[in-house]
Computed example of a mutant assay.
Amino acid sequence: MTQRDILAAAACIGGATAARAQDCMAVMAQDPQLSGFVGALQRTGQADLLRQVGPFTVLAPTNDAGGRVPINIHDDLFGSAAMDDIDPVRAPAVLDAQIADGRHPASGAQDREQTIFRTRNSNELIVRRDEDGR
Results as ranks from 00 to 15, higher is better:
16 A>K: 12
16 A>E: 08
16 A>G: 14
19 A>N: 10
20 R>L: 11
22 Q>T: 12
22 Q>M: 12
22 Q>F: 00
22 Q>G: 09
23 D>I: 00
23 D>G: 03
23 D>C: 07
24 C>G: 06
24 C>L: 01
24 C>E: 04
24 C>V: 13
24 C>P: 05
24 C>R: 05
25 M>F: 12
26 A>S: 15
26 A>Y: 00
26 A>M: 06
26 A>Q: 14
26 A>K: 09
27 V>A: 13
28 M>N: 02
29 A>S: 15
30 Q>W: 01
30 Q>F: 00
30 Q>M: 12
31 D>A: 09
31 D>P: 07
32 P>L: 03
32 P>H: 05
32 P>Y: 03
32 P>M: 06
33 Q>M: 11
34 L>P: 05
34 L>H: 08
36 G>S: 13
37 F>L: 06
37 F>G: 06
38 V>S: 02
38 V>H: 01
38 V>I: 04
39 G>W: 05
39 G>P: 06
39 G>F: 06
39 G>A: 14
40 A>W: 01
41 L>K: 00
42 Q>P: 08
42 Q>S: 13
42 Q>E: 14
42 Q>L: 07
43 R>M: 03
43 R>S: 08
43 R>K: 15
43 R>E: 05
44 T>E: 07
44 T>H: 05
45 G>N: 02
45 G>T: 01
45 G>S: 03
46 Q>W: 03
47 A>R: 02
47 A>D: 15
48 D>M: 11
48 D>C: 08
48 D>Q: 14
48 D>I: 10
49 L>T: 12
49 L>R: 14
50 L>A: 06
50 L>W: 02
50 L>G: 07
51 R>I: 09
52 Q>A: 13
52 Q>M: 08
53 V>A: 10
53 V>N: 09
53 V>M: 06
54 G>W: 00
54 G>F: 01
54 G>T: 01
57 T>V: 02
57 T>Y: 04
57 T>D: 02
59 L>Y: 15
59 L>E: 02
60 A>L: 07
60 A>R: 06
60 A>Y: 04
61 P>I: 03
61 P>H: 00
61 P>A: 00
61 P>T: 04
63 N>K: 04
64 D>L: 12
64 D>I: 12
64 D>C: 08
65 A>G: 01
65 A>H: 04
66 G>N: 13
66 G>T: 09
67 G>S: 01
67 G>L: 06
67 G>I: 00
68 R>Y: 00
68 R>A: 09
69 V>R: 07
69 V>N: 04
69 V>Y: 02
69 V>M: 11
70 P>H: 10
70 P>M: 08
73 I>W: 09
73 I>V: 11
73 I>T: 10
74 H>E: 07
75 D>Q: 13
75 D>I: 06
76 D>C: 14
76 D>Q: 15
76 D>V: 06
77 L>S: 05
78 F>Q: 05
78 F>N: 05
78 F>I: 06
79 G>Y: 05
79 G>Q: 04
79 G>C: 03
79 G>W: 04
80 S>Y: 09
80 S>R: 15
80 S>G: 14
81 A>S: 15
81 A>R: 13
82 A>Q: 13
83 M>W: 11
83 M>V: 10
